[in-house]
Each structure stands twice: as C-alpha cells, then as structure tokens.
Amino acid sequence: MAFLGLRKWPTPILKPLWPFMAAGTLTMYLVSKAQDNAVRSPENRNDPRNPYAAQIARESLH
C-alpha cells in the first residue's frame, strides 16, 4: 500500500545512473585536456588574447 505516493523501499538512483555519471566525468576530463592542449599550442602561445599567455611564458623560462 502506498501512502501519499511513498513506497516501502526507496527508488534506486545511483545504480541505474552510474554509466551516465562515468561518461560525464570522462567527457569533462577529455574536454579539459583538449582545451589545455589548444591553449598551449604554438600558434596560440604568444597570442595577446590568450588569458594564460603570461603563465605559459613564466613556465617556459624555468
């Protein structure tokens, strides 16, 4: 018998959604790596519009 729509056992949430969470994590990681490689590419390394240009220049001096 359901009381106000509540069941005797809770509906599982994590068990059926774990593939989507794993795929989302993997996608975020790969996009982050692609962005980092694009920012550090030779054609964008010295571009004045690059917000990481100063940081890349400091790292290359060491």
Rank of each mutant, 00 (worst) to 15 (best):
M1D: 15
M1H: 12
A2S: 12
A2F: 08
A2R: 07
A2W: 04
F3Y: 13
F3L: 15
L4Y: 12
G5S: 07
L6C: 12
L6E: 10
L6T: 10
R7C: 09
R7M: 12
R7E: 13
R7W: 10
R7F: 11
R7K: 14
R7G: 14
K8N: 06
K8A: 15
K8T: 07
W9Q: 04
W9I: 03
P10C: 03
P10L: 09
P10A: 06
P10Q: 05
P10Y: 04
I13D: 00
I13L: 08
I13R: 00
L14C: 03
L14N: 03
K15F: 11
K15Y: 07
K15V: 13
K15W: 11
P16Q: 03
P16C: 04
W18D: 03
W18R: 11
W18L: 07
W18P: 00
W18Y: 12
P19N: 06
P19W: 06
P19R: 06
A22N: 01
A22F: 06
A22W: 03
A22Y: 02
A23S: 07
A23K: 02
A23R: 02
A23P: 00
A23M: 10
A23N: 02
G24C: 04
G24K: 00
G24I: 02
T25S: 08
T25H: 01
T25F: 09
L26I: 08
T27D: 01
M28D: 11
M28E: 09
M28T: 10
Y29P: 00
Y29V: 11
Y29L: 12
L30E: 05
V31F: 09
V31G: 02
K33C: 09
A34V: 10
A34D: 07
Q35S: 11
N37H: 12
N37P: 01
N37M: 15
V39T: 02
V39Y: 05
V39K: 00
S41A: 15
S41F: 12
S41G: 15
P42I: 10
P42G: 04
P42E: 13
E43P: 08
E43N: 11
N44S: 07
R45N: 06
R45G: 01
N46S: 13
D47H: 10
P48V: 09
P48H: 05
P48F: 08
R49L: 14
R49F: 09
R49Q: 15
N50F: 11
P51M: 04
P51Y: 05
P51R: 02
A53H: 06
A53Q: 15
I56A: 01
A57I: 00
R58D: 09
S60G: 00
H62R: 12
H62Q: 13
H62T: 08
